[in-house]
Write a protein that binds this DNA or RNA. Structure first.
Lengths: 216, 216
DNA sequence: ACATCTCCTTAACAGCGTTAAGTGGCGTCG
DNA sequence: CGACGCCACTTAACGCTGTTAAGGAGATGT
């Protein structure tokens, strides 16, 4: 009967476990007690590694970013269009990989400088394509915020594959907007094929960058 | 010594009071007990008017929308560019008018069909400018989600005029990103002049709509 | 007059993030 | 060897949260 002692925790193990649990219970179910239970520990133990829950969420967001960056093949020969597409498709994919991923991500701040290298590489590629640094920042920032807004909305309606938030299906919306024919018709377009709608928005942004900043 | 009886509550009074209180205490301080206290009532009384807190937040978001729509002059002679600019500037202004406005707004769903008329008018104007309905929906949706993403970020860094979130000023960011010159330089551009940055993003989107959908 | 409906109160519940204090095991030092 | 001290955690508790159950006062209807 050995008690089989656990190895001590560290920030990484906690964040990993919390991310796994996030997908099972969602953000509102992600309590410190639940995370601790998963780690075979009591809740206050987490305060040894994180000063409060937000610090843990920050670490989770940072880890989400690290995994996203690790999975992205950054071809230095990309055109700026391809790079912006890859960045934002990758970001959306990463956020969709976690329940409430967008809410966790945009409510948090990175804990380290892990994003430095990729940010630098992206800015370099954009500026070498003929954009000024300010233009590159605007382009990156605008697409980034669009993507965050998009996925936030997407996950609000559909927190995870399967399961829809109650009281917001197309039929009910159509009933409430009867009398507004264009609005009602628009509803059909609004709740299907998120992939293609996301792409369309990205294309709009990229067309705008090309037009306004005169980049090839 | 008259007890000076209160008039009975209704959903509107509750939502109005909650919105006023939101600006004083922020979303995390907006508890049912605090709202009830403001209304000279006990917390469970609110459950007579709303089935749960989310229903109250939904009503608040709807009221935010109503006030925004009421303050917007919708000139039928607008070009589609002007209209999209007005809509999204108005939305941003409305969200910035409340502490955590963007989080409340994008976490909620409208309770009625108040948005019907304006949505219909906007879609009509866009389609009469030569866009297909699908294009109009894409244009409106993309700008809308950009604006929500932008203000969410903006209010995350600066929840209200004054008061910044701790641990994220430009100096600390620059220190962490030393060694990444473009990224460090970009930081200066990232945290100042939100108004102008918002405008720039909007212009990118509008340029993209013009270019991709070939509208005048 | 009694019953009904409306709107609110009191009391309580489980669960939350968080803090304070204590405790067992380990490494180091006298 | 024994004592000290640090690490990583536990136990206990606090004030707070959203929410439910039960009841009660006051107007309204018959």
């Amino acid at each position: 009967m050995k008690p089989e002692k656990r190895a001590p925790l560290d920030r990484g193990r906690v964040a990993d476990t919390a991310l796994r649990l996030l997908n099972e219970v969602g953000l509102e179910g992600l309590t410190l007690r639940a995370i601790a239970r998963e780690l075979d520990v009591k809740a206050p133990a987490l305060y040894w590694h994180f000063k409060d829950k937000q610090a843990l969420l920050d670490e989770m967001a940072t880890e989400m970013y690290r995994r996203m960056a690790a999975g992205a093949a950054l071809d230095p020969a990309d055109t700026w269009r391809e790079r912006l597409l890859k960045i934002n498709r990758g970001l959306r994919g990463a956020l969709l990989g976690y329940r409430d991923g967008a809410r966790v991500f945009s409510g948090s701040r990175f804990t380290g400088a892990d994003h430095g290298p990729e940010l630098e590489a992206n800015l370099r590629l954009l500026t070498e394509s003929g954009l000024t640094l300010a233009q590159a920042v605007h382009a990156g920032r605008t697409t980034h915020l669009y993507t965050l807004g998009f996925v936030t909305e997407e996950q609000g309606v559909r927190p995870h594959p399967d399961e829809r938030r109650e009281g917001y299906d197309v039929a009910e919306r159509a009933r409430r907007l009867a009398g507004y024919p264009l609005a009602a018709e628009a509803g059909k377009l609004l709740f299907d094929d998120y992939d293609q709608q996301f792409e369309e928005g990205l294309e709009l942004l990229i067309a705008g960058i090309a037009a306004r900043y005169g980049a090839g």
